[in-house]
Design a protein around this nucleic acid. Structure first.
Length: 442
RNA sequence: GUGCCUCUAGCUCAAUCGGUAGAGCACUGGUCUGUGGAACCAGUGGUUGAGGGUUCGAUCCCCUCGGGGCACCCCA
């Protein structure tokens, strides 16, 4: 039989990595809940029609196929469009502003690369039902708190506004239907430099002199106040710019009031973001130490829910890319996580009778009742050396021995496998003793 | 979707000019009948990613497919 493979871009996870993933998910969930977000879940499969027409060019990456009844099925491509559908369906059962988080896998038929898989998890937090920049500020502060809690060093949330980009296109004299290529060109500033962007802008139909002015404008750096002032001057008279600048001004004001550390967010006029549904502020969390692309993508999408109902409901939110976070955490060893779940192995003394087995089973049951993650050896008659080796190789921190000698003396031998220290603990108090030891290590 | 690189044991790699494969680590057992991670000894493990072609003969050269990676596109 040939060795089976998993699909390209799909992966298995061994316990060690799975424990790390669960740890990161736990941190994110705690952060979301600390801000009052509630959990929801939606199906992995949707009618293709629900997903179609929401992502622009990326639509070709949606996995879709007919099911057995001939229905066109799409696998969810992100958690945002399903949320919009969810809100449209349950509009009358929700209280707005509705704040939800959703941690689940999504699928994209993309070509795999570093930090890029065909099945990956997104960890979203969104606020539906308010246009206020208070919501956008809340979302950005969550991103900053979450990435800080995971110990990601030197990350920066880049912030821009779709309407600012629109204004820029108008300023550049580009027709609305070609604006996309202008955004994409600008977005590459950090990557291909000013000359490269100029070239692409010209290719998109922008005059050389205008391209130069656009580039000069988007590369403006300095504190948000200064930059906002500069742009306001240049884009005066262009309607969307006024609106965008008001939003951005409030947003930065709220972020400061929330106490978000200034080194973790910045106004970046060159940030574009691809997804077609964004309408307002857009954000992206970037770390450049391990080159991983963006760890978090986010933005406001006021028109999306309206695509599923007659009511237009504004929304904003963000999406953490779990595998990119994990890749960074693993590469930089940012979190110190145990490699195994089990905390104690109760050995079975290898005599011929069943008395030692029963002693061990009584003990392990007692440990579990005390809240210790404990297991007993699963084979009788194995010599102690083997049992110890089993515990050590799996990374179980404690091994207990309850043999004839211990039983007679009314104790249990507790060995800390990390430092080789072994102590005899009275049988009556060993569960409490171990619970304390183990709690200190969690 | 486009272009390029790559694939030998579970992992990291070796094999002269094309002459049908080897090491270290890991794993299993032993030295070791109340205590692991050391050392020593032995063992399991491969139709060289799959299929086809060229050749007397292919790990090596060619083609197709699959996996991994890089750049582009795009994105978490």
């Amino acid at each position: 039989m040939r060795a089976p493979q998993v699909l390209k871009g799909f992966r298995d996870f061994l316990p060690e990595r799975m424990i790390l993933r669960q740890r990161v998910i736990a941190i994110l969930r705690e952060t979301y809940e600390r801000h009052g977000f509630e959990p929801i879940e939606t199906p992995a499969l949707e009618y293709y029609e629900t997903l179609a027409g929401k992502y622009g060019e990326d639509e070709k990456l949606i996995y879709h196929f007919p099911d057995h009844g001939g229905r066109e099925i799409g696998m969810r491509y992100d958690l945002t469009v399903p949320l919009a559908r969810f809100v449209a369906v349950h509009r009358n059962e929700l209280t707005f502003p509705f704040k939800r988080y959703h941690i689940a896998p999504v699928w994209r038929a993309d070509r795999p690369q570093r930090g890029r898989y065909r099945e990956f998890w997104q960890c979203d937090a969104d606020i539906v039902g308010t246009r206020s920049m208070l919501a956008d500020a809340d979302v950005i502060s969550i991103v900053i708190e979450a990435l800080s809690a995971i110990n990601i060093p030197n990350f920066v949330v880049h912030i821009n506004h779709r309407k600012l980009l629109e204004s820029l296109a108008i300023y550049a004299g580009v027709q609305a239907d070609r604006a996309g290529s202008v955004y994409r060109a600008i977005d590459k500033l950090a990557k291909i430099g000013e000359a490269g962007v100029a070239q692409e802008l010209v290719a998109a139909g922008v005059e050389t002199a205008t391209a130069a002015r656009v580039i000069e404008l988007v590369s403006t750096s300095g504190s948000p106040d200064v930059v906002i002032g500069r742009i306001a001057e240049r884009l005066e008279g262009i309607a969307p710019a006024r609106e965008a600048l008001d939003d951005i001004t409030s947003l930065f004001e709220f972020l400061a009031a929330l106490g978000a550390p200034a080194e973790h967010y910045t106004l970046d006029l060159a940030l574009a973001r691809g997804l077609a549904y964004y309408t307002g502020p857009v954000f992206e969390a970037i770390v450049d130490e391990p080159k991983m692309g963006s760890l978090v993508g986010a933005g406001r999408y006021d028109g999306l829910v309206g695509m599923f109902s007659s009511h237009d409901i504004p929304a904003t939110g963000m999406s953490v890319g779990l595998e990119r976070i994990i890749d960074v955490v693993e590469e930089l060893r940012l979190l110190d996580v145990r490699t195994t779940i089990s905390e104690a192995l109760v050995t079975i003394f290898p005599d011929d009778g069943s008395a030692s087995t029963h002693e061990a089973l009584r003990l392990v049951a007692e440990l579990r009742r005390a809240g210790v993650r404990a297991e007993a050896t699963l084979e009788e008659g194995r010599d102690l050396g083997r049992q110890f080796r089993y515990a050590v190789r799996r990374g179980v921190p404690f091994a207990l021995v309850i043999g004839p000698d211990e039983v007679q003396r009314g104790v249990v031998a507790v060995k800390d496998l990390q430092n080789e220290l072994q102590v005899d603990v009275p049988r009556a108090t060993v569960a409490a003793y171990l619970r304390e030891r183990v709690r200190a290590q969690r």
